[in-house]
Write a protein that binds this DNA or RNA. Structure first.
Length: 473
RNA sequence: GCCCCCAUCGUCUAGCGGCCCAGGACGCGACCCUUUCAAGGUCGAGAUCGCGGGUUCGAAUCCCGCUGGGGGUACCA
């Protein structure tokens, strides 16, 4: 294949939805795979709804995901001259025509049609206007839209993912290219730009498939070659309905804020609809690039499985180098400890976490002393009669040298044997005292990282509290 | 309403006529490991391939119908 040119063309009317992120990813992978060019184009022809901040947000999200573009971003709002020139050409060639009906008239006709149980179609009135009449009325200042003269024969769309789809001419009417205010409409700008930018493959969501015959007709009218189409199945929510904020997160930014890694989201999204074909699950962008092909994309819609994303995130999280981990964790909050301690702590807690938020939360115990203790833990181990051995453990730990987990464990085992109790009976109250919870990394490794002073203070404070010495129960 | 697309374990999927009484992954269960919780390891349950017709010696794989789901039907993108 000669170097393909693909594009991702989001509309800045919302943040980057995961469906859009996946479309961007596939385009990116395809371009990378074949040594092509990935173009970014912002479709902001809807001046009412487009917002600059949203464009920035989309660009941010893409950068975060690692989907950098080779060209652009181009803004359609800045390319009016190109569209108008193309419109002029189509009009001159008779491939498009002026239609003078007002939006109100069309609306009324549509209403009437529906009321009569008929399918509304544009009457085609403008089609039969003579060129002279059209020119005269336009020159007289009458408002008009530009419509494309659609062909009378069926249009077949050959799709790389969905297969063949045929559209009958009666289902397609002469759609509007340019609004009466002179602004071009989406279908028109897309095609003009795709031609102008030399796009060879159009990879986008299936929601665009019904629009594709219009585009095919336009490409032909424009005298351009038809690009290869690849329409991706929708990404649905867990309930099979369209994925939206109702399902929790739906935008890339939201997943970022929820502590997901960009490589995990990308990996997960890649697998929604595409399969590497060799039972692979975990892949880097590079690995995906090497394996990517349009042929291995399935046509059916898929559901967004939050559980699997979380699992994948947990998997990839384990592989993050300590340095980067701390940098990633910073926005989520880190206790005031030196970097070395934080790195050791993170390493200790990592396998118990699946998101950055979880890591951040679990690292809180290296900051403030716990003030709350889990109820089940207090019920089981918050008994005054257990405090004697907790104090005994504390006093052993006070003198252990070196202050390392192996030595501590040895001392604790000795103490347990002397007292005739299990190591667990000694460790659990200590764990509760240290973390407020019954779940934590191995006790002595944790204490080693936490520091002797902190550990002893917490154990003694806990014993005091349980024995009622400080009032609180 | 009309048009278009889709349909394999709960979920993501492998499968492109015989290798499949269907393989992998998430999730779920059990066990092992173990000072707790995870991680990890092992094993297991889980789809008569939506339904009904064809085609074929042979169909999850091809064709048709139905059902279900999704999308489109704008001077939105």
């Amino acid at each position: 294949m000669t170097a393909p040119r693909v594009r991702f063309a989001p509309s800045p009317t919302g943040s980057l939805h995961v469906g859009g992120a996946r479309t961007a990813l596939y385009n990116w992978l395809f371009a990378r795979r074949h040594g092509g060019t990935f173009v970014l184009r912002i479709e902001d022809t809807d001046v009412e709804r487009s917002r600059r901040e949203l464009t920035d947000q989309i660009l941010d999200a893409m950068t975060w995901l690692g989907l950098t573009w080779d060209e652009g971003p181009y803004f359609q709002s800045e390319r009016s001259a190109i569209y108008l020139a193309a419109a002029g050409r189509l009009l001159a060639e008779g491939k498009a025509y002026r239609a003078f009906e007002t939006a109100e008239e069309l609306e009324a006709a549509r209403k009437a049609g529906e009321a009569g149980g008929k399918v509304y179609r544009y009457s085609g009135a403008g089609r039969s206007l003579s060129r002279e009449e059209s020119d005269t009325r336009a020159a007289a200042g009458e408002r008009f839209v530009l419509r494309l003269r659609m062909p009378d024969e069926p249009i077949v769309v050959q799709d790389a993912v969905q297969g063949r789809a045929e559209f009958l001419p009666e289902a397609l009417d002469d759609f509007i290219l340019v609004r009466s205010d002179g602004n071009p409409v989406y279908h028109f700008t897309v095609c003009v730009d795709d031609v102008e930018m030399g796009i060879t493959h159009v990879i986008r969501g299936v929601d665009h498939l019904p629009n594709t015959p219009k585009h095919v007709a336009l490409f032909r009218a424009l005298g351009a070659e038809i690009p290869v189409f690849a329409h991706l199945g929708m990404i649905l929510g867990p309930d099979g309905k369209k994925l939206s904020k109702r399902h929790g997160a739906a935008g890339a930014e939201e997943f970022r804020a929820a502590g997901f890694l960009p490589e995990a989201l990308a990996n997960f999204l890649a697998l929604l609809g595409w399969s590497p074909g060799e039972d692979r699950e975990r892949m880097s962008l590079e690995e995906m690039t090497a394996l990517f092909s349009l042929e291995r994309i399935g046509p059916s819609p898929s559901r967004f499985d939050h559980e699997k994303l979380t699992w994948l995130n947990g998997q990839l999280l384990q592989a993050v180098p300590p340095r980067r981990l701390l940098a990633l964790l910073a926005p989520f909050g880190l206790p005031a400890r030196d970097e070395g301690t934080l790195e050791r702590a993170a390493r200790l807690h990592l396998s118990r976490c699946r998101t950055l938020v979880e890591v951040s939360q679990s690292l809180r115990i290296y900051g403030d002393d716990p003030s709350e203790f889990e109820a089940a833990g207090l019920k089981k181990f918050g008994k005054p009669e257990l405090m004697k051995s907790l104090r005994a453990l504390a006093s052993r730990l006070a003198s252990v040298e070196p202050f390392a987990h192996a030595e501590m464990e040895e001392a604790a085992r000795a103490l347990a044997t002397e007292a005739g109790v299990s190591l667990g009976a000694l460790a659990q109250p200590a764990r509760l005292a240290l973390t407020g919870s019954l779940a934590s990394p191995p006790l002595f490794e944790m204490i080693e990282v936490m520091g002797r002073e902190t550990a002893l203070r917490r154990m003694l404070a806990f014993a005091d509290r349980i024995e009622g010495r400080t009032g609180a129960s």
